[in-house]
Design a protein around this nucleic acid. Structure first.
Lengths: 147, 147
DNA sequence: TGCAGTTGTAACAACTATCGTTACGACTAG
DNA sequence: CTAGTCGTAACGATAGTTGTTACAACTGCA
């Protein structure tokens, strides 16, 4: 069975980064650098900057440039849900239709697209509903409870 | 914005193939060949055989070899949900944790894994619940209604 | 028995996405 | 001005998916 290495770890990394910034700020610091975050996540600072750039465009984080620069939250942890994060970094849907248009002469080929789209819409809605239930404040609480 | 070509179209193709077999059988034929199915799906027969091989292992389809060979359903369309199909072809989870272990010395790095796992478990459960609501009989009904 | 048609599966190329990395310009506090 | 950091381009390595060719295995039927 394949190990599916390509599964999305972006949501995990993004939640990790934002939670780290939030905790760091609560401990009295103004900004967190991509290098500090990368150390906790165990990856390269550029990976963090790339991800935070998307979160910044979505209005979840802000950056300060120049010396003494770094990242801060644009909203409180309690005001950011995992759905907010998901939407900021995952543009595509979970399920896709055919790459090549199926045979329109065939009854199934003609009608399968709309039929599956209806199902996929419901699935995506359920997924979003579930992600919206958890805020980064909840995540931080779980993290601190585990310590 | 990325076009995300890598999104899963497998579930669509698998549902298409099984529905096609089901309809073909209801019209009086015993078996359907991978070439016939591939024509409707607009892809290569080997792609269909690869997919049906997995569905066969999961007990959703059966194949007959030799001359006059082909594929048939192992259960009625009404007894196959999209969750059955999904589980047969998608081994991995939708969301993954970090590829590289995060810093265990860091509070966040240490506790983020379990925290996100709890969320992901709920999300996957919701996704499965939603997929289980629809049978291939429902899909076929929608398909025929659209015609 | 032999032939024809189909499955089962390996192998390969093309394409795409992701990730880690290096590099460097832009920016700004001190 | 200088040092430190962001923002982003570019590149190679890795891996997943799809389409394709090829061929052995199998079996109904003449």
């Amino acid at each position: 069975m394949e190990s599916d290495v390509s599964a999305n770890s972006r949501l995990t990394i993004a939640a990790h980064a934002l939670t780290w910034i939030g905790l760091y700020q609560r401990r009295g610091h103004e900004v967190a650098t991509s290098e500090q975050i990368a150390t906790s996540v165990n990856t390269n600072p550029v990976v963090i900057r790339r991800l935070l750039a998307k979160l910044s465009k979505a209005g979840l984080a802000d950056s300060r440039r120049g010396a003494g620069a770094g990242w801060m939250l644009a909203r409180d942890l309690a005001a950011i849900t995992l759905l907010d994060v998901y939407q900021a970094i995952e543009p595509g849907p979970v399920f896709a239709l055919h790459r090549a248009t199926p045979d329109p002469e065939c009854v199934v080929g003609h009608g399968i697209g709309p039929a599956m789209t209806a199902v996929y819409d419901d699935v995506e809605a359920a997924l979003r509903r579930e992600l919206a239930k958890t805020t980064l404040e909840d995540v931080l609480r779980d993290v601190l409870k585990a310590a």
